[in-house]
Computed example of a mutant assay.
Amino acid sequence: MADNLIGPRRYSCYRCRNLVSCHEDIVSKGFQASSGRAFLFSHAANIVEGPKEDQHLLTGLHTVADVYCADCGELLGWTYKRAFEESQKYKEGKIVLEKFKIAKDNW
Rank of each mutant, 00 (worst) to 15 (best):
M1Q: 10
M1A: 05
D3Y: 14
D3N: 13
L5E: 14
L5G: 14
I6Y: 09
I6E: 08
G7F: 03
P8I: 14
P8M: 14
R9T: 14
R9A: 09
R10T: 15
S12C: 13
S12N: 13
S12H: 10
C13G: 08
C13F: 11
Y14D: 12
R15K: 14
E24R: 15
I26N: 00
V27Y: 04
S28W: 02
G30P: 00
G30M: 00
G30Y: 09
Q32C: 09
Q32N: 04
Q32T: 12
S34Q: 10
S34I: 08
S35W: 10
G36E: 04
G36D: 02
A38L: 05
F39W: 07
F39H: 04
L40P: 07
F41M: 05
F41L: 09
A44C: 15
A45W: 11
N46T: 12
I47W: 04
I47C: 03
I47L: 12
E49K: 15
G50D: 08
G50F: 00
E53Q: 15
Q55D: 09
H56D: 12
H56F: 14
L57C: 08
L57K: 00
L58G: 12
T59W: 03
L61F: 13
H62W: 06
H62T: 01
V64W: 04
V64Y: 06
V64M: 07
V64P: 00
V64S: 06
A65P: 05
A70D: 08
C72L: 05
G73N: 07
G73D: 07
L76N: 01
L76W: 11
L76E: 03
W78L: 13
T79M: 13
R82E: 12
A83P: 07
A83S: 09
F84W: 10
E86T: 08
S87T: 09
S87F: 03
Q88A: 09
Q88K: 06
Q88C: 08
K89F: 03
Y90L: 02
K91P: 01
I95G: 02
V96S: 02
L97S: 09
L97E: 11
K99F: 13
I102Y: 01
D105T: 10
W107H: 07
